[in-house]
Amino acid sequence: MRKGILALALCWWASSAMAVGNIDVLARTCNNCHGLNGVSAGTTMPSIGGLPRGYLSKIMKEWKYDKRVAATMNRIVKGLSDDEIDALATYFARKPWVPVPQKTSAATYAKGKATITENCEDCHGATGNDPDEGAPRINGQWAEYMALELEKYREEEFLMPHRKMKKTVRKLKESEVYPVSEYYGAQNQ
């Protein structure tokens, strides 16, 4: 019985691996900008290891099919098949989420905490570590990256998905963008 399950599992693994070539080779090309195992060392680039599979797959397809603006990623993913995108999403979703240590001041942290709303908590969790499948974890994500991402939501000329996110973010004052980002960035370290 056990052998049967194992054989079935192997069979599944082999067929899905064959469909997209060697996914490890492809995934390692992502490491240049997102770090080994998807843990980013650059403050403006997000860590991606351990993000929900659904979120990773969705965002890459949104870029691929021009439903969401990006500065660089939208060009990169256009060369990948949907199967490769799904396989990459699975690969990175299986990695552990590693919050990165960041500095923030007590005042900024307090301001950030006071600024977040129920809307933020609904999808990301109160401390950013309990995301819906379609939303990213943000506890210990790089604050600088998150602030830039919020700026993208605030820029009316940018095509961004998710009405709730747009509405929530556009209510923020400019002076609240960094504190909110730093609040979530400082979680779980």
């Binding site: 240049n32 770090g35 650059g42 403050t43 403006t44």
Partner: peptide
Amino acid sequence: GWLRNVMSD
């Protein structure tokens, strides 16, 4: 961010 990541990687 790219620079810090490629150096680290």
